[in-house]
Write a protein that binds this DNA or RNA. Structure first.
Length: 116
DNA sequence: GGTGTGACAACAA
DNA sequence: TTTGTTGCCACAC
């Protein structure tokens, strides 16, 4: 798998339950600013093979991403909604309030856990 | 090497 | 707030 993907997953693994991150934020923390679309690709391809909390990754505006075949009770967005609510994150029509739930990594984590 | 396509983001209107 | 545009970059074709 691509080197960058490993980093993405490591970053995502640090997101605590009850918080979310945006694609761009993951890319930034992984040392690849501006590469948000690559994060989406990484999840699309490996989220089901890795132990990643993919549901904690949303768009920068708080909207749930993965909306293909959405609206339907089997859409990924709905699955994500359920998983997020289990985490204790409020989801109102496909969107979470970033001001309240966006993860703000602490400096210690950045310096000692994300040793890239 | 050109072109189109993304589980995106920033910005303008 | 929603919609368009443009920037991004890896990956097919």
């Amino acid at each position: 798998m691509h080197q960058a993907y490993q980093r993405f997953f490591k970053v995502i693994s640090l997101v605590p339950q009850g918080k979310v991150v945006s694609y761009g934020q993951v890319a930034d923390l992984a040392g690849l600013p501006g590469r948000s679309r690559m994060v989406g690709k990484a999840l699309r391809e490996y989220a089901h093979k890795e132990q990643v909390a993919w549901h904690r990754v949303v768009k920068s505006n708080g909207q749930l991403a993965a909306l293909p075949s959405a609206e339907t009770s089997s859409g990924k967005a709905n699955i994500q909604t359920v998983l997020l609510r289990e985490d204790g994150v409020a989801v109102n029509n496909q969107r979470v309030k970033m001001a309240d739930f966006q993860w703000q990594p602490d400096t210690y984590t950045l310096l000692h856990t994300l040793n890239f």
